[in-house]
Design a protein around this nucleic acid. Structure first.
Length: 413
RNA sequence: GCGGCCGUAGCUCAGUUGGUUAGAGCGCCAGAUUGUGAUUCUGGAUGUCGCCGGUUCAAUUCCGGUCGGCCGCCCCA
């Protein structure tokens, strides 16, 4: 069959699938608007440096998953692997945004990560994204999670998800805890899995949620982050949990929840599901108070999340049906010409009208049936002479004569 | 990046223990009195059996490679 294949890990969104895609993005956009978030977009590629500095050189995303290339001007560019760094860069690049704090934005678009594809994991995938910049208060954490919960709820996904949250503390107590953990695991290094041995250098917190049985045994005795949070971090986390409870959002505290991007502080959270295989995370994010300063901008707090559109599509309810069209089926050259004007007038009234480019009556009605039309307007020479049309209802099969100027009213739902 | 499963018509799949014309259902196309769909009936076409190479008198079937999908790990949305 030797067909042209799309690049590995990319896929086409054909109309039926795109409907679900648009449904997910539309629901997210609507809910975000209800909370006062404004939509924006940033470029699909940025200087490589932005992601390397922002996400962290040693993270998997940066060290082995980026689509990085030199352009013709010999600049190193990277297809964005996530949205947050780009939005923070836009914040720094556009001074006017610093006057609009807190800045609450919604965005959606394609992301690129060179990974081994699987269901729910493509190399080009799409995310919806929410960010709040300039709000160090726990209220922003609560709101951002609330937006997520409402979007999931509107899509019919919330009940199939669990919200897990954790605190990663501030940089000060995280550094302390990290050292405590490294010391602990170093004492058990002989029994650690190979994966975890390498994690010990890169991201020791990750060992906490290892799936390896041997690691799990060692983890049972590991010191807990909760015991090492400083007072400020403790208070912050408590405020977030209280707020979620007050808002009626169910959650579980998961001390092993650690996110893979270096910039997170304090709140980290994920909505996870068991319904789409190994790709359990449907939506995840957290607070990143140090990121903007790290990128060279004015010290500004940030919190946000990203949700995988393809994963949401796999879980969401069937989108609402599209409006059923009306088909206009003229017979003969004169009617064909006249039908163009009739169809356009009806469309101006908001009625979806399709007119085939060719075909006899049978063919046109067959196609009308195939596209799930609700009615057909049939016009031949006889009707033309009388200024009327035959209006056929496909569901009942009834057909009646309607004056041309009464068609729009007859077709209003 | 590591380990494993898989790849036959548009779709879902059967099949060839290596041997002339590779099948089914759905879908598609064409007909069943001159301007009427969906339902019914009749007929038709589906295809380099993912791609490349090897073994063989002979491969879609065996072997190797490759590309792609899927599952688990890693990682993440």
């Amino acid at each position: 069959m030797s067909k042209l294949q799309p690049v590995r890990g990319t896929h086409d969104l054909l109309p039926d699938e795109y409907r679900r895609f648009a449904h997910v993005v539309g629901a997210a956009r609507d809910v975000a608007r209800l909370y006062g978030y404004r939509e924006m977009a940033t470029p699909i590629f940025e200087f490589t440096e932005l992601f390397a500095r922002g996400i962290g050189e040693t993270t998997d995303v940066v060290s082995k998953e980026m689509y990085t290339f030199k352009d013709r001007g010999d600049e190193s560019l990277t297809l964005r692997p996530e949205y947050t760094a780009g939005i923070c860069r836009a914040f720094i690049s556009n001074g006017e945004l610093t006057q609009q704090l807190p800045l609450k934005v919604f965005a959606a678009g394609p992301m690129f990560r060179y990974e081994r594809p699987q269901k729910g994991r493509q190399r080009q995938f799409h995310q919806i994204d929410i960010e709040v910049l300039g709000a160090p208060e726990p209220g922003a954490d609560i709101e951002v999670i609330s937006v997520a919960a409402d979007i999931l709820d509107r899509l019919g996904i919330l009940e199939r998800c669990v919200l897990k949250i954790n605190s990663l503390g501030d940089p000060e107590c995280r550094a302390v805890y990290r050292k405590v953990l490294v010391d602990y695991y170093s004492g058990h290094i002989g029994k650690l899995s190979e994966d975890s041995k390498s994690r010990l250098q890169r991201n020791p917190l990750r060992i906490l949620d290892s799936k390896d049985e041997g690691d799990k045994a060692i983890n049972a005795g590991a010191p807990s982050f909760a015991d090492h949070l400083n007072q400020a971090s403790r208070d912050f986390f408590a405020a977030v949990k209280d707020g979620l409870a007050a808002a009626g959002i169910a959650f579980e505290v998961d001390p092993t929840l650690v996110r893979g991007l270096d910039y997170y502080t304090h709140t980290a959270f994920e909505f996870v599901t068991t319904h789409i295989g190994a790709q359990g995370t449907v939506l995840g994010g957290g607070r990143y108070d140090g990121l903007i300063a790290e990128l060279g901008g004015p010290p500004t707090a940030g919190i946000g999340w990203a949700g995988g559109i393809e994963r949401l599509m796999m879980l969401c309810n069937e989108p609402p049906a599209e409006p059923r069209p009306v088909v206009i089926a003229p017979l003969g050259a004169a009617a064909e010409t006249k039908a163009l004007g009739i169809a356009r007038a009806l469309r101006r009234q908001g009625i979806t009208v399709e007119q085939d480019y060719r075909g006899n009556m049978k063919r046109r009605l067959q196609r009308a049936n195939k596209i799930n039309a609700r009615a057909a307007i049939i016009i031949g020479d006889d009707e033309l002479a009388k200024g009327v049309a035959q209006l056929k209802d496909f569901d009942s099969g009834d057909q009646r004569e309607v004056a041309l100027d009464a068609l729009a009213d007859a077709l209003k739902v």
